[in-house]
Design a protein around this nucleic acid. Structure first.
Lengths: 201, 201
DNA sequence: CTGAAATGTGAGATTTACTCGTGTTTGCGT
DNA sequence: ACGCAAACACGAGTAAATCTCACATTTCAG
């Protein structure tokens, strides 16, 4: 049901594993999740359908593996930003700006994958669990920044979690569903302003 | 592709129409969207599979019809709240409190339907369009409140839209995915506080 | 070289969304 | 009351997709 059926032990199988995921990423991006069939994924990857099911127990497992890669990347990038914040101790405005800007970049970098994971996909419990885990990590890091800036308030964890959820939703909307009449940059500026205002007691 | 294939003209057919949607709501709630089959929906509704497809051109149409009902209800409730705000002109804090509380109630009222529409479902273009339309209406109404309170800022539409997205995400998370260690009421209180702070210039 | 484990194969079993030809009920003009 | 056209209901059957399984091929340690 979840994740991977068998881990590759030889390079040969690692290659087919990669080929399958690469083909899945391409086809999901081109035709959407429901629009791609496992047979077509196997075909484009140049392997038999049997090989696909040797490594991924079902279609959703392909999506989960892709989400794993994507979230790992996002986690790494954000981790670097938080480390730099710990080193340089910038003020509130600069801190918010850096976090918002990198999150915007993460959304801009591969919009298809983002749309795939957060819009076109039936969010299974497994996928939701992965997402919430990343959200928790982010909230913890944001909470640390709030404490550093002395604006953690009476409930640091709650405040941090809400900020993470808010920014995620706002940035996702601003980058991926640019609404009529307002351009993305305007929205990003306003996002930063609102966030700073809500914290500057 | 979209919506309804044939509108009922006799009471008899109206009854089967209702039975089908009721069965769909139950099964979607119990087994999720991908976990329920149209055949099972027809079976539980006590009608033949042919009858189902007489009224709903495909599986997704069931979901769309359900979302229609749900959003119509939400729209009505929120419309009433905004009308009352126009009449009574409460201050910022009270305005935010009323909007947050009713949104929380809407989420609490039928969590399964909410989860269904916003988590378990592949968000088709049709569904996304409906959702964004509701979001736009909300943003317009919130914008009017901001102007009334004299806190619209330089870009009222942008600010209103961001507030709507933020509140939706935060409340959705607080009510439907109560995170470990923090209870819903604490989160709701903090949501109001953050929202008011971000607007009290 | 050899055998066992790992990897690869693809026909087909199973499931599911959806169609279509046919039968039944309802409303209505006469 | 009668008949008839339109609305409604039916369910076996079709096409297409997911996933299995019995067997073939490759790799590699000893």
């Amino acid at each position: 049901m979840t994740g991977i059926r068998k881990k590759p032990r030889q390079q040969r199988s690692r290659a087919t594993w990669d080929a399958i995921l690469e083909a899945a990423a391409q086809l999901f991006g081109e035709r959407g999740y429901t629009g791609t069939t496992t047979n077509k994924v196997a075909e484009r990857a140049g392997v038999s359908i049997g090989s696909l099911y040797q490594y991924f127990p079902n279609k959703e497992a392909l999506l989960l593996a892709l989400s794993e890669q994507h979230m790992e990347h996002s986690g790494t990038v954000l981790h670097a930003v938080f480390e730099r914040l710990e080193r340089e101790h910038p003020g509130l405005e600069e801190t918010v700006a850096r976090l918002v800007d990198t999150t915007v970049e993460l959304h801009r970098h591969n919009p298809n994958m983002h749309r795939l994971l957060f819009e076109q996909t039936p969010r299974s419990p497994a996928l939701m669990a992965r997402f919430q885990r990343l959200e928790s990590l982010m909230a913890a890091a944001v909470g640390a920044q709030l404490r550093r800036l002395g604006i953690a308030g009476p409930r640091p964890e709650a405040r941090a979690l809400l900020l993470v959820q808010s920014l995620e939703a706002q940035i996702h909307g601003a980058v991926l569903s640019p609404p009529g009449g307002i351009d993305t940059d305007t929205l990003v500026t306003e996002i930063k302003a609102l966030c700073v205002a809500s914290l500057a007691s």
